[in-house]
Design a binder for these strands. Structure first.
Lengths: 192, 192
DNA sequence: CCGGCCATGTAATGTGTTACATGATTTA
DNA sequence: TAAATCATGTAACACATTACATGGCCGG
């Protein structure tokens, strides 16, 4: 028995523990609600759904339309979910394209790095707005899962805010690097 | 012409733009210096090195030991690096195991979520210490790449600090949840 | 002389996305 | 009636890690 992609199972069982859904809705829910820290594609979801049903952890009922199914978690599934939630957390190693570019930013020049910061600011502000909107919505709904949802949203918001602070500070650093010495290497201006 | 894994090329060319290295050193350097936002394995590095050499972007010189090589970037490689640095940033979708577990934390119970926060605090503090050490080292060395290295370290530090703040705030929330309502979670009785 | 590190390389395997194929239903 | 959205499913591909196989060098 291979160790299996338990993370997708965790996301699927977790989502179904909140409410029964079709595969399509599942994907949309994960995308919209968990989007800032998780993602699943159809290519993962549908096979996982079939497997979990074969394992007796979820059940399929016919949906509104012909051919569609609504899946709901059962007791065995809830047990499995709790197991998975207690299992070891194995995050895959980080890969941040922005930081990789900035790290080698000397080859790019300070000016272009500043442009990267502009993009980062824009996308971060957009995400922050999104998170605040979701936060307000969850607070309004007041479901039993709400407090846990809010925990994750809170970290997202704090991370966005930290990123925006960092953008401002970095802008200052890079501007000095860019304008400080008109003629040649960027190293000259920075040192005391 | 397939789009090719340009991100590994970017990391490898970037690292070689700082100084010539063997494949082994490359992996260690990426692991230690870029570790908080990037990772590469041998299985990626060695094939990439051969490919880049075949494409004429880097050059191999014999190393200290028989069979070992030291790779250095050439002008074509630097040109390619600049292209890659300007290319579109396609981060793979995020996957944060901690947040996934907290999101479905109702199935786990507040107490176990608090344990997750403890682990997070410990690992975050460790990473923060690591980052501060690297920061001090880079500041001491004062290389031309230094200011760019410091940019990425700075974001790492700010993110860690935001995470620690979040841990404290979340602890308060979960403690209220744990003690406040006697019978909410379906899986387990909370207090032994 | 042995354990640990330096060093290279490949095969197996897992994981996940993208693209495609298909078709029903709602909405403009 | 055309477009968008709901809905399911699979095959091909890309990407990366892990494990293994191999061997030289150095310090204790």
């Amino acid at each position: 028995m291979p160790t299996r992609s338990s993370t997708t199972d965790l996301a699927v069982l977790g989502a179904l523990s909140v409410e029964p859904m079709s595969g399509y809705e599942l994907r949309r829910a994960i995308h919209e609600v968990l989007g800032h820290f998780w993602s699943e594609s159809f290519g993962q979801i549908y096979p996982a759904l079939h497997r979990l049903r074969d394992e007796g952890l979820i059940e399929a009922q016919p949906g509104d339309r012909p051919g569609s199914s609504v899946f709901s978690i059962n007791d065995a599934g809830r047990t499995r979910l709790t197991e998975l939630l207690q299992g070891e957390i194995r995050d895959r190693p980080p890969r941040n394209g922005l930081l990789l570019r900035l790290f080698f930013g000397r080859n790019l020049g300070a000016e272009r790095c500043l442009a990267l910061l502009d993009e980062t600011e824009a996308s971060t502000r957009a995400q922050l707005a999104q998170l605040r909107a979701t936060q307000a919505e969850v607070e309004r709904e007041a479901s039993p899962d709400g407090p846990y949802f809010l925990l994750t949203i809170d970290l997202g918001i704090r991370t966005c805010e930290a990123t925006l602070d960092w953008v401002e500070a970095s802008r200052a650093t890079l501007t000095v690097l860019d304008g400080g010495d008109g003629s040649s290497s960027p190293a000259a201006a920075a040192s005391p």
